[in-house]
Design a binder for these strands. Structure first.
Lengths: 146, 146
DNA sequence: GTGAAAAGATGACAAATGTAAACGAAAAGA
DNA sequence: TCTTTTCGTTTACATTTGTCATCTTTTCAC
């Protein structure tokens, strides 16, 4: 595996703010506060703290705009999503990832275009897919389960 | 959405131990210690602490076996996996989940059976799939992005 | 039965997280 | 200019998480 460009780990609370900034492209602390209020009862203080932490983690950068700061993303949403998804799946048993992905496919609202793209990916993969994928739940033990 | 039977949140470290216990069905503290050692340099103390926390969180229960405890799972691996995957995807923009799932499909090693099952799921979904899925990144704002 | 080995119980401690309150400076309105 | 509002900065504080070290209590081998 390539050593992935590690994006900073973001907490759930921080992620909420990032989504706002990713979508708007940039935002001031008060803009973020105003927008997040539709969803979370956080005080401005809380938002400021989270933004500061995101800057420290190098997930955001700031540019001054007179008295205040404008916050801009330093990592893309796509990259952050990829990393989070990867980290989640890294916890799972190799053998069981397929089942879990299947469940996600079932539960997620997908557009027709999404589905067509997935169908293309799967068709390609099928050709070289292994008969089975071994469980790797017991460290150092091959075929731990089943 | 139905109110999901909430399984306790497990940390990354705790999850590692759970995988061992799920796979073996049950294990004593020293068995877990021995097995985890192939992967993590944790002391027995660390393992005991994590097991205790898992019991407190009601992810595990114990039965006495003479001087020691046998740890048994109180939640299934499947349930825990579902919940973790759900929580991860809950963070993501509705509109972008499909793209992220597609990437996961590409990157994950899938068995032929996995792929066939996914193909079946997708074929079914396609019939009733929406043309597009709206972004929900800005709380309270419809079609935030694009 | 005595000492070493094995288990559980307790206590610790730093870093990360969620969630602010307070304080100080600057800008804007009266 | 005096006051209020608006920002950023500092400090705080309880929890959770990662990692152990110790202490205590059982056992098991001599």
């Amino acid at each position: 595996m390539a050593v992935t460009e590690m994006a900073p780990e973001m907490t759930t609370a921080e992620w909420e703010l990032m989504r706002i900034i990713w979508t708007k492209g940039q935002a001031s602390s008060s803009e973020v506060s105003a927008l997040i209020r539709a969803k979370k009862n956080w005080t401005e203080s809380t938002v400021k703290t989270l933004l500061r932490r995101l800057v420290n983690k190098q997930a955001l950068k700031t540019v001054r705009d007179g008295r205040r700061f404008i916050y801009l993303p330093l990592i893309t949403e796509s990259h952050a999503m990829d990393q989070m998804a990867e980290e989640t799946f890294a916890r799972l048993c190799e053998m069981k990832k397929g089942q879990e992905l299947t469940k996600l496919l079932e539960e997620t609202t997908l557009s027709q275009a999404d589905i067509r793209q997935m169908q293309a990916v799967l068709a390609t993969k099928l050709a070289s897919a292994p008969q089975t994928v071994a469980c790797n739940c017991l460290p150092g033990v091959e075929h731990a389960c089943c």
